[in-house]
Design a protein around this nucleic acid. Structure first.
Length: 568
RNA sequence: CGGGGCGUAGCGUAGCUUGGUAGCGCGCUUGGUUCGGGACCAAGAGGUCGUGGGUUCAAAUCCCACCGCCCCGACCA
């Protein structure tokens, strides 16, 4: 490609809308432009990089034995009703109506479609295992699109769905995808970590997320450097420091005027450490109030609460609901003597004694509360958020917590969809059984931006060779057609092109500074600078993005470039 | 959905408090001089000041409503 013929609108200044580095570079390097919030046009350079990522994904999926298909993005709502997700996915479903006013949904994911397909095609165990994938645009009515391509209303996703006859076989399919994902992200030049994940509305057995460590990420990951335990904080467990277990006597009410928070009680005159307090939360679960007890220095993990409650339909109670349930306002809440409401307590509190908690009277608290003696706990479980520095569950080393971008997610689904949508087969004994499914997603557009987020410096993007829109940028410093500089540039351009190298020739009549800045902003992995001064010595300049300038003999330039391309 | 911020030329912005018919930088066009790290000189083009309403002799500026964009949050009593 000749730069003069291309469309590469680089920007000197950063558009005000961009906050994080990858979003800024996406716009500045002329890769994409915003249509409106959460919707982007990929410009030629952006499309090239995107296609590179797609191709890596495609190659690795094929290598892992998955079969490429392409499903409709427009879907009938009936299959969503059949799977039971028409309601639960309300929040993200884009809907459209046709001329007859019939409703359609724009696919946010394709379990319903693929399972419907298999319901029609599958009949025998002999057809399994099978794994189908597609690379396609997904639509999600995100509450808040963010950071350019990072969270968009429309985005390119690779989704795959496996069908197996047994749990063991399903696990093998899962493992294949897990391994394929590790290869995919590695080939994209990304450092990722696979972490245990919460399964959310997918309701699967277990899952892993592939995370790119980055401050701009929307997730938090807990991990242990010692034993390599790693989990999304929504899922992560950790050991807590032990509670006091020696009873201080019978509960005793005391006045706490103007005390509204855990923090207030830690200060004089009360001096009660947060770890010696019981935090009482009121939630409304499926319309009914429940109490949740945590230690004062701990925080609730709603993903874990979902598991404990057995429902995702819950929310924090409003102030008036709290008063109705307990007779006191937030700040003086407690569970002592409460019999009519179910009490869910965090495991950490088991055996805790001599604790302080609200007395369900405004301005009063109770001390010398012994958990199991004084509170009727209905359900004990892990309800708390793991915190940095707490000992790892497995080895006891302090856990680290870092932000990260989720680029891939693998789920073991089980039979939820195959049962609901009748993807059944006859086994060896003639028994009709539902296929055991797994599903596997990669945010392709998000992966692209994650690469930029991870690979950049003050001058711009540093593309890994594997996803660079062009791998080589030829930069003649003067473009007079008959000059020696341009003649050499043209020859190199022809030779590299002939060998299938993706090369761009900066034939613009611009000053050297402009060309250098642009090539670094965009981040082509290899630049060959050709100028009169060095050419007089028979040399050109080979520069890898992020590396040092290296003078090389002009007549060896082709060979050197080819070496760089194959070595890296 | 709640909170905060912002909307002025393609991009970045000043002007708004204190109302008087819009300015700067980048980019763009033309000519000239330059030419190894985002050149310089000169002359230009480009604006419904987000939209609608109100106040006023007069509104980018004050008031009301709406729309859009960005950020934080969606919980911790």
């Amino acid at each position: 490609m000749r730069w003069s013929q291309a469309f590469i609108p680089t920007l000197k200044e950063t558009p005000a809308e961009a906050e994080i580095i990858s979003h800024k570079l996406l716009l500045r390097a002329g890769l994409a432009r915003k249509l409106t919030g959460g919707l982007y046009t990929f410009l030629p350079l952006g499309v090239r990089a995107l296609r590179k990522v797609e191709q890596i994904v495609r190659e690795e999926m094929n290598r892992a034995g998955a079969l490429e298909v392409l499903m409709p993005a427009l879907q009938p709502p009936e299959i969503w009703q059949q799977s039971g997700r028409y309601e639960s996915a309300q929040g993200v479903l884009f809907k459209a109506r046709d001329h007859a006013k019939k409703e359609w949904v724009l696919g946010p994911t394709h379990e319903e479609v693929i399972t419907t397909l298999m319901a029609g095609e599958l009949s025998s165990y002999r057809q399994l295992p099978k794994n189908f994938y597609q690379i396609q645009t997904k639509f999600r009515d995100e509450i808040r699109p963010r950071f350019g391509l990072m969270r968009a209303k429309e985005f390119v996703m690779k989704d795959a769905y496996s069908f197996d006859t047994t749990d063991d076989a399903a696990l093998a399919s899962y493992k294949k995808m897990y391994d394929a994902y590790a290869r995919i992200f590695q080939r994209c030049g990304l450092k990722t970590m696979a972490v245990e994940a919460d399964t959310g509305i997918m309701a699967g057995k277990f899952s892993h997320e592939f995370m790119v460590p980055a401050e701009a990420g929307e997730n938090e990951v807990a991990w242990c450097e010692q034993c390599h335990y790693a989990a999304n904080v929504e899922k992560a467990g950790s050991r807590a420091t032990p509670c006091e277990t020696i009873s201080g006597g019978q509960p005793e009410k005391f006045a706490t005027p103007n005390v509204a928070t855990i923090d207030d009680l830690t200060r004089p005159p009360f001096n009660t450490p947060a770890a010696r307090q019981i935090k009482t939360l009121v939630y409304i679960a499926e319309g009914k109030p429940v109490l949740i007890l945590l230690r004062g220095d701990h925080q609730l993990n709603e993903a874990k609460l979902t598991v404990a409650l057995g429902t995702a339909t819950f929310r924090p109670a409003e102030a008036q609901e709290i008063v109705a349930a307990l007779g006191a306002r937030p700040g003086s809440l407690g569970a002592v003597g409460v019999k009519e409401l179910p009490v869910y307590a965090d495991e950490t509190l088991r055996g805790a004694a001599n604790m302080t908690t609200g007395a369900n009277e405004d301005g009063r608290h109770l001390r010398q509360v012994d958990l199991e003696r004084d509170i009727a706990v209905k359900h004990w479980g892990d309800l708390r958020l793991a915190q940095a520095g707490e000992p790892c569950l497995k080895c006891g080393q302090p856990l680290l917590i870092r932000r990260a971008i989720e680029v891939g997610h693998v789920f073991k689904l089980g039979t939820k969809f195959s049962e609901a949508l009748h993807a059944l087969f006859l086994d060896e004994s003639g028994q009709k059984r539902p296929a055991i499914m797994g599903c596997y997603g990669i945010g392709v557009t998000r992966t692209l931006q994650a690469v930029i987020e991870q690979c950049n410096d003050k001058d711009g993007i540093i593309w890994p060779l594997s996803v660079a829109p062009y791998t080589v940028c030829l930069t003649p410093l003067s473009v007079a057609p008959e000059g020696a500089v341009m003649k050499l540039a043209e020859k190199l351009y022809a030779d590299l092109s002939a060998r299938g190298v993706e090369v761009i020739l900066d034939d613009r009549d611009e000053r050297p500074g402009v060309k250098f800045k642009d090539s670094e902003l965009i981040g082509f992995p290899i630049r060959v600078g050709i100028g009169e001064k060095s050419l007089a010595k028979g040399e050109v300049e080979l520069k890898t993005r992020g590396g040092a300038m290296e003078p090389i003999k002009a007549d060896e330039a082709l060979q050197k470039v080819l070496e760089k391309l194959s070595v890296k």
